[in-house]
Design a protein around this nucleic acid. Structure first.
Lengths: 208, 208
DNA sequence: TAAACATTGTTATTTAATTAACAGTGAAAT
DNA sequence: ATTTCACTGTTAATTAAATAACAATGTTTA
């Protein structure tokens, strides 16, 4: 089951979100073209992704929602779940924490970190905030394997080093500082300014 | 100059951010491999992107930082600038507004919208917040062409419809609801849960 | 000055991702 | 029944993106 395309992984996560909605609305089956419409992609794309993860149905009544949720879960989730931590509990850190927690069973934000003494040693957005100085210890104690960076750009490099020393396995970097990590740490970067500038560019393009 | 690859546009935005940093640090020239290292990509990729936008240098002392910033600006920015609006000024909306404004000269967040009367008709993160009921009017008055959606997922579809009626040209959607828009509106979607799940998947992969 | 080197610009190749094409098959319609 | 239809699964073709290869050229070094 290894070697799934990166893009497919992203879509599987999205399919699951939609499927969970379907389930909540009492739908038991869903067609490939329904999923496609809900995600602005083609039905072929959906079927191909689902083929790649080895699920298939003999019925012509669409995919079994529950079964498909489980299959996707077995691909994306680990058996025992993973813990993540937010580093920098400003507006963005809070947004992510509040938005995410409780939504998934096998992935959770277990701790947050900050330098500001006003924020540390309190519970923020439902999660305890620790001083960054204790980060190494807490990460090991709580078995945290993913770090989400929402610190000011000038702190990103130093924080990353601490994270890696503490044995973090994956980093999701929301700062505008591009990071350099060894290949055994998975790194995903996202910059909101770039996204906005991209939209601006294509808006300009369309109007020419 | 048209038909630049989408990925190139994203990288140009990132190069410019780095170049502005270089300028602030007094660097006047930068090698392709310097830019590459700063972005975790190859020097070939950098040179190719720069080739595509038609900039070149005869010197073997790297690219002229200032000149390159200008060339990228002429690609990405419009002459007169574009205005964007945040819809939903919760934690995420605030984070984006505060993070973005003032960073660029030809792109700015000109207004924010919310339904909560506690928030409306006040200045939040430096920008005036209007009630969503006035969105159509304000968008036209202030010539806003980009909408950034940070509302709860259940409101996304309705807000989008209003935006499009008001003549918006591009949408950056941070809600978990996937949108359906006509092809003359540029749509970019980003979901943080998906990103986090992707990181979790690849962390799992690496440890097998 | 000439040789060695470093750097860019560009074409060719490879790889990744998407889309098209279509065979197979159960369900519905006649 | 049997024909038509609607869907799925999968291979083939296409398109987009990244990488490799290398010629051209200015710079440094001996």
């Amino acid at each position: 089951m290894s070697k799934l395309p990166e893009k497919t992984i992203g879509r599987l996560s999205e399919y699951r979100r939609t499927l969970l909605n379907c389930l909540a609305n009492g739908k038991t089956h869903v067609f490939s073209h329904d999923l496609a419409n809900l995600h602005n992609i083609t039905a072929v794309q959906v079927r191909r992704d689902i083929m790649l993860i080895g699920y298939s149905t003999t019925l012509k009544k669409g995919y079994d929602v529950k079964a498909l949720i489980d299959v996707i879960g077995n691909i994306i989730d680990t058996k025992d779940g993973l813990n993540a931590a937010i580093i920098g509990i400003g507006n963005l850190g809070r947004a992510i924490t509040a938005y995410f927690n409780g939504k998934r069973t096998r992935l959770k934000i277990a701790a947050t970190f900050d330098t500001d003494p006003e924020k540390t040693n309190r519970v923020i957005s439902g999660v305890k905030c620790y001083p960054i100085s204790e980060m190494g210890r807490i990460i090991k104690e709580q078995d945290i394997s993913i770090g989400i960076l929402t610190v000011p750009p000038e702190d990103a490099a130093a924080v990353t080093e601490t994270l890696i020393m503490a044995g973090i396995k994956g980093i999701l970097n929301y700062t505008s500082t591009s990071l350099n990590v060894s290949p055994n740490v998975y790194l995903e970067e996202y910059d909101m300014i770039t996204s906005l500038e991209k939209v601006a560019y294509f808006v300009k393009e369309k109007n020419e």
